[in-house]
Design a protein around this nucleic acid. Structure first.
Lengths: 155, 155
DNA sequence: GTGCAATGTCAAGTGCACTTGAGGTCAAGC
DNA sequence: GCTTGACCTCAAGTGCACTTGACATTGCAC
């Protein structure tokens, strides 16, 4: 039984178990999202808790966070030990709020589309999908509205 | 009253009314997402229906479609006239399915997080957020699971 | 008829999230 | 001892969705 299989993971093992390519793992480390120790020969060795961290990262990406934002999020979680209930609760509830907001965005969009089906979008002045854009004239360049309830990532 | 303000829009007007930069509009045209006619002097002139198309594009982006996918979607909508009820219905219902799938993904994630709060994530073998990743060992590199119900964009 | 903002093209640059390649090292197995 | 595969670093490349820059032209406003 090798050392890594006892309590530390080699990068290949971590990659296999997380589904994330070694190159990406090195990249995450470079960005400060994960950490590793090194063997005397210079190879990376990861704690098992890193797997949890990676699961976290992957989930965070699916709800639209950038790696930079994710790094900030991870600062709220312990890097080297299993988070306790209180630590989790803080982070998880903040995330749930974020997910809720995203779901609300999508529901809003869906109802707009429903309205469009109803109206047949025959009227430029009535279509909800169309008008939010058109009435944005003069709000300055690059204005994005309609969907993203763009509160800064607070978790 | 200028020609463009009568029934065609100059790129600056379209940009102001859509909130999308002129450079992006040219880029979209290059990709075949929108079309324009040209004045004798070579300037772009857009039909008003292009605004609707742009609203569509922006919405499609927020639900995660690439511009390539969006171009395919737009093929189902008339480029130059206001879509009729049947045309809209086809497209809009397909979109709603896609939105529903995305919402379901998020709900699934949310319930996983809820479970994590409950368990306090004190157990590596029990945490739902953690295990889907860890048990993926051997599924090949780059495997992504957990969230994306990855059906090809069919709308 | 002149000025100037808006627009045109084309090539190159940007930011993100990685991947790929070159060239070298480490370590388990025979 | 030697092979072989996993791993190392560093630089460069990739794909997407645009933006920026340089330089030329157009056309409305005075």
């Amino acid at each position: 039984m090798t050392l890594s299989s006892r309590d530390r993971l080699a990068i290949g093992e971590l990659s296999a178990r997380s589904g994330i390519a070694p190159s990406a793992l090195r990249y995450y480390e470079e960005l400060g999202l994960i950490r590793s120790e090194r063997t005397s020969g210079g190879r990376r060795r990861y704690r098992r808790a890193t797997l949890r961290r990676l699961a976290f990262i992957r989930v965070a990406q699916t709800i639209g966070l950038s790696l930079d934002e994710i790094r900030d999020c991870l600062a709220d979680l312990p890097a080297d030990h299993v988070p306790n209930a209180a630590e989790w609760e803080t982070v998880a509830t903040a995330w749930q709020r974020r997910i809720d907001a995203r779901i609300a965005d999508l529901e809003r969009l869906k109802s707009k589309l429903t309205g469009c089906v109803g109206c047949g979008c025959l009227s430029l002045t009535r279509c909800a999908l169309y008008n939010p854009a058109d009435t944005a004239a003069g709000r300055g360049p690059g204005a994005r509205f309609l969907l993203p309830s763009e509160d800064p990532p607070s978790v």
